[in-house]
Amino acid sequence: MHDVPMGEILKKLRELNAERVLIQTPEGLKSEAQVLADFLEENGIYAIISGDVNYGACDPADTEAKRLGCDALIHLGHSYMALHLEIPTIFVPAFAKVDVVPAIEQNIDEIKKLGRRIALVTTTQHIHQLERARAFLEGNGFEVLIGKGDSRVSWPGQVLGCNFSTAKVDADGVLFIGAGYFHPTGVAMTVKKPTLAVNPYSGDAVWMDREAERLIRKRWAQIAKAIDAQRFGVITSTKKGQLRLSEAKRMVKLLREHGKYAKLIAMNHVNYFALEGFDFDAYVVVACPRVPVDDYESWRKPVLTPREVEILLGLHNEYEFDEIVGVERGTDEPLGLSLKGPVT
């Protein structure tokens, strides 16, 4: 379960004079969304729950909320991201109710293999315990670095599936606290340093280097598979936090300069099944970088990232993960539960 500050949400909605809201949530927080909707309706606010799949703070349903006649959107489970939004949006991080220190203590011998100077990162769900984790590690002789990251993240030490800027510090290795392989694999692929993932729920510790190497080998295979491709579909997403139109246009221009046929395609949900009718030899995804990396087996034709296109064209020979970057942060202050209205 997760902590959802319902009283604070209600207070902010009343400040907005909101009478109808849309609640958007990832899969793991559907039950919390339902409880929140009940709470809001008990307090006089009509609540609608979005049934669509949500991929992160990069994918707010503010347009859908406006169409539904809502006065505000509650984006549950993710931290604030600076986007051009159509209605006031409350980003509500949901913090996990699990103590991360016991799992760290259980795996202290494995953590020592990272070296003395380590970078510490986690996801939104555990960010509220990062300082406790740092204090415990420093008490065990480690020098712990928590990177500030760029404007795409809300807190120092936070990583997203598309942005690992907080892990790019001068450390011997990286300790990731959280569940699953999704985030720590991206960390390992990006920083190219020993990366250990400690799961605070199970207590397991997994080295991610081998998983990262396996994925990178598969990416080189995708590049090789596209070596004879002449016709490229360059895909940009219309999701607000994934829209990289200038980069997509650059890819089209670059491919054409190298004698390739290239067309720009815009999609909301990027998936191969919707592309079956097109006559392309390969695709370039200039949206969420995890689509080509994690979902390539669902694509019948080669699917590349912008960096992989540059490798294909002979402009680079070293593999780099395709992050979506922000600008350098100017403050250490966490944004927490925050309100972002329309940008004009």
Rank of each mutant, 00 (worst) to 15 (best):
V98K: 09
S151I: 10
I118A: 05
R132S: 12
E110A: 14
V169K: 10
L73Q: 13
L120N: 02
R116V: 13
D38R: 13
V153K: 02
R134A: 10
T63V: 14
L76I: 14
N43P: 02
V174H: 00
Q125G: 09
Q106K: 14
Q106E: 11
D99C: 13
E42M: 08
G161K: 06
G141Y: 07
I74R: 03
E143W: 15
E143F: 15
Y55W: 08
K168H: 04
N163Q: 06
D170S: 07
V121P: 01
N107I: 06
E110H: 13
G139T: 04
F95K: 08
Y55P: 03
G115N: 01
K148V: 12
P102C: 09
Y55R: 04
I48A: 14
T123M: 08
E64L: 15
G147W: 03
Q158M: 11
K168P: 03
C162H: 03
V169Q: 07
A167Y: 03
T124I: 15
V92L: 10
P93N: 09
A57I: 05
G173T: 07
A61E: 08
D99K: 15
A72D: 11
A133H: 04
L120D: 01
T63N: 09
F142S: 07
I49S: 06
V174P: 00
A167H: 01
A37D: 09
K148A: 13
D99M: 14
Y46E: 14
A96L: 09
I90G: 00
I87G: 06
I104F: 00
L83S: 06
L36C: 02
Q158G: 03
L76V: 11
E64F: 15
S79H: 11
A61S: 11
I111Q: 00
G139A: 07
T89R: 13
F176A: 05
D52A: 15
A171F: 11
D38G: 10
E86C: 06
P93L: 09
A133S: 13
I74K: 07
L114E: 04
N107D: 06
P102S: 10
Q129R: 12
E138N: 05
I90M: 12
E138V: 05
F39I: 09
A171H: 12
V153D: 00
N140G: 04
I90V: 10
T166N: 03
T89P: 12
A37M: 08
G161R: 08
A135P: 04
A61C: 05
I74G: 02
A61T: 05
K148T: 11
T122G: 02
V98S: 03
P60V: 07
H128E: 11
D59C: 13
T166K: 01
L68V: 08
Y80F: 15
N107W: 09
F95S: 08
Y80E: 10
D62I: 12
Q129M: 12
K66M: 13
V121K: 00
A47D: 05
V169A: 07
L145N: 01
N107P: 05
I49P: 07
L83V: 06
G173K: 00
G157A: 12
L40Q: 02
A37P: 14
A82Q: 01
R116W: 06
D172K: 01
H128N: 14
L145R: 06
